[in-house]
């Protein structure tokens, strides 16, 4: 979304994303990149309000209203930087010339620590439960039968990389 002066306004990505709201956090799954993110309340509020029409000033005002506390625009820029790095923006905002890179540390050093919690977007990296199995060879897989306890097992086959031991024709198992 562009304004008359040619500057872009931030717009949140909507496609291929799945979200879940929990207390104080918004979880986002990117179906294209198969990555999950956790947005704290501040980041989530900013992201949800990025509709391609609101300026950074508008977003700061919105966040101030939401959290009942004044918000420095640098807080918004910090959020936008993180959202952009996480591919959660469809359109990024045009940065004002001369605006330095903003980090959480720089905001704290500058004393911009209002009652507003700083925005935080983190990737969810918890180990997946034991669905992932030890790779087996094609020989082991094809030696199994669907009627065996546990069936074909669905173990990853290696080689070929990326395949799994799944049900084949009849009672057989195959790496595919």
């Amino acid at each position: 979304m562009k304004r008359a002066n040619g500057h872009s306004l931030p717009k949140a990505r909507k496609d291929d994303l799945v979200t879940r709201q929990i207390t104080g956090e918004l979880l986002v799954y990117d179906l294209k990149r198969h990555k999950a993110f956790c947005l704290n309340n501040t980041a989530a509020t900013i992201w949800k309000n990025c509709n391609g029409k609101r300026t950074v000033s508008d977003l700061a005002a919105t966040l101030s209203n939401d959290q009942e506390s004044p918000t420095d625009e640098k807080v918004i820029w910090l959020a936008l930087d993180q959202l952009e790095k996480s591919y959660l923006l469809e359109t990024r905002a045009t940065r004002p010339v001369g605006l330095p890179a903003i980090s959480r540390r720089s905001l704290i050093r500058a004393g911009i620590l209002t009652a507003v919690t700083l925005p935080l977007v983190t990737m969810i990296t918890s180990p997946v439960a034991a669905q992932g199995a030890t790779p087996i060879t094609d020989v082991v897989c094809t030696g199994r039968h669907q009627s065996d306890p546990g069936g074909c097992g669905n173990n990853p086959c290696s080689p070929p990389a990326g395949s799994k031991c799944i049900n084949g024709p009849g009672n057989t198992c195959k790496c595919a």
Binding site: I22, L27, A36, C38, S126
Partner: peptide, 18 residues
């Protein structure tokens, strides 16, 4: 880490439901 596990399971569940 346990809490992160909860987040991971929750968002994965949302995807699996689809």
């Amino acid at each position: 880490a346990l809490r992160e596990g909860y987040r991971k399971h929750l968002i994965d569940a949302a995807v699996h439901e689809l």
